[in-house]
Amino acid sequence: MKESWDFGQDPLVALQRGDPGLFEAFVLSETPTFLAFFLRLGARRAEAEDLVQDLFLKLFRNAENYQPKGRFAAYAFRVARNAWIDGARRRAHRPGEGRGDGGPEGDALLDARIAAPAEEPGAALAEREEVERLHAALATLGQHHRLVFELGVLQELPYGTIAEMLDIPIGTVKSRMFHAVRKLRAGLAGGEA
């Protein structure tokens, strides 16, 4: 998520002004971000696409009532997180449709990513193993830890913002982040041992 979407370039504020250009640019540039966000959280491919659509539709439809408070990125991820939780509730009511945890689509994406040409075959193999271990370790994280890791490390949101988004104390954010990182590092190191 670009820093530039905050403050002076808030897409929803621009929409309120009657300028859809910024929102369109936001959708075009950040669709991969949110798609990856939901995939990393464990959504299947089709479900992730639905969630991304829901997210942008919610942002668009709520633009009239939107009041900028803090970073737009934090607001957008809060909406995304709520969409994910709503989706998880729906999935819970549909037996047999559990989380994707990467799923076949996730594996396909993983394969596509790793299949990128490497300078040396050995390096490519090592990279592939490392990526697989990291994915496996991420899949073992619980939803809370995964979400904190996602927002803190990958989206680089401050602890305070994460605490506000998730409506939890900042100490809890720190604790979850610490345990998430430790588990991931252990997972990565375990493969190397």
């Binding site: 075009l28 798609l35 990856a36 659509q53 539709l57 490392e130």
Partner: peptide
């Protein structure tokens, strides 16, 4: 490892983005 460009193909993201735009602006 988890950078979006390595998880999501540009074509699929673009298709999705355009369908979102078609439903919004």
């Amino acid at each position: 490892t988890f950078v979006p460009e390595r998880i999501v193909t540009a074509a699929s993201a673009d298709t999705l983005a355009r369908s979102v735009l078609a439903a919004t602006t």
